[in-house]
Design a protein around this nucleic acid. Structure first.
Lengths: 225, 225
DNA sequence: CCCAACACGTGATAC
DNA sequence: TGTATCACGTGTTGG
């Protein structure tokens, strides 16, 4: 009963992976002979029901080919699921869009700041530690709350809240590490688009001095080095 | 006969266009109650055949939602066809990739013109996704404990402990950010020379797949780009 | 009237 | 074993 459809049974798992992966730019949908309307038997396309069958077959085949083509342009495919392919494609598109936004900002930044390059150069000499040389000023850290308070003895607790954007956490960590503080314990929590950081550190420093230091480090992390 | 399936007859044409288009960043697939295994009649999921029916229904629904989500992130949709949606998505991805290549060339051009604030520009040359060009011995991340477990529905919790050295936190954050995960909440705690990170993220990904991904990202973060 | 696009139930296959 | 994914044929609807 299923003799001529049987080559299609494993279509997804086998045949699709053997197809051309390189000449996909041209043709791409022009080939794909699809099924002819003429049935293998003497009857031509007169069958009222069999007409729908072959149409549906072609539709399914087209859809699978499209899906396969989608999989081809998306890197980092994990599972070969139809649903997973679409999911990965969505995430990939989103990441591409994000990156484009980021890079557009970067490029405009670069264009507007090229003349200050020399001036910035001498500021880098004071940076104890070589920071990133890439010129990105991605969405400066927007501090919502910032508190430096004394917890008995010589323990200071610094609590800080800011909006979580791309690389916010990284730059915040860099800012704190650049200060070489004696950190006893540190806690970072992220939810609802906000980043909360609490640091217990040991030090007899004046609160205001420490506060200014941290503020400067955070501000510097949003600056071009 | 088709009373409860009838709301699904026009599913593609009607319901899908009314769904949320804006709060798609979080959740996005966490809702979607799908069908319960319990049939509307007194019989529970015991029917051997009806079990497959509801599974297949859920699979179709998931696929349609994915397809709808794909349509949502792609501008300039021409036809609402399933096949057309995928086709438009493919073309959009290709255009994004082209644009990224173009813009990367432009940016590296711009960087080499400024000639420039630091001397490690040769390391910034070829990398499709420009990582940091900092040259520093990484002091590799020593993972003490690493667990990926499922928390009901499609929420995955990743908990990790490692020794806290210099830049460990930064590189760990970079590793996680590079994966573009859908992070619901994240918590980092540091004490006694150890760093504990717990991440709640949304995803129906296979635990082992995710685990391998994270391990690879962490391993990669100990490398010089 | 037909054609295109869809949802549905079903049996098969893989893990 | 069961669970998930798939291709298939069928009935239906809108243009």
């Amino acid at each position: 009963m299923e003799n001529m459809d049987d080559d299609y049974t494993k279509y997804w798992e086998t045949n699709m992976f053997l197809q051309s992966e390189e000449l996909d730019s041209y043709f791409d949908e022009a080939l794909s002979v699809y099924y002819d309307s003429s049935s293998p038997d003497g009857m031509q396309s007169s069958s009222p029901a069999s007409k729908n069958i072959v149409s549906e077959r072609n539709r399914r085949k087209k859809l699978n080919e499209r899906l396969y083509a989608l999989r081809a342009v998306v890197p980092n495919i994990t599972k070969m699921d139809k649903a997973s392919i679409i999911r990965d494609a969505i995430e990939y598109i989103k990441s591409l869009q994000d990156e484009e936004r980021r890079i557009q900002a970067e490029i405009s930044n670069l264009e507007s700041n090229t003349e200050f390059c020399e001036m910035d150069q001498e500021t880098t000499t004071f940076s104890s530690k070589p920071k990133r040389s890439r010129m990105e000023k991605p969405s400066p850290i927007e501090v919502v709350e910032f508190r430096v308070s004394n917890m008995g003895e010589n323990v200071v607790v610094v609590s800080l809240a800011c909006s979580k954007r791309r690389d916010t956490m990284i730059r915040l960590c860099e800012a704190f590490e650049s200060l070489n503080l004696k950190i006893i314990t540190c806690s970072i929590n992220v939810f609802a688009g906000r980043l909360f950081k609490t640091v217990f550190l040991e030090g007899d420093e004046e609160n205001d001095v420490l506060r200014v230091k941290i503020e400067a480090a955070i501000a510097a992390s949003s600056t071009i080095f």
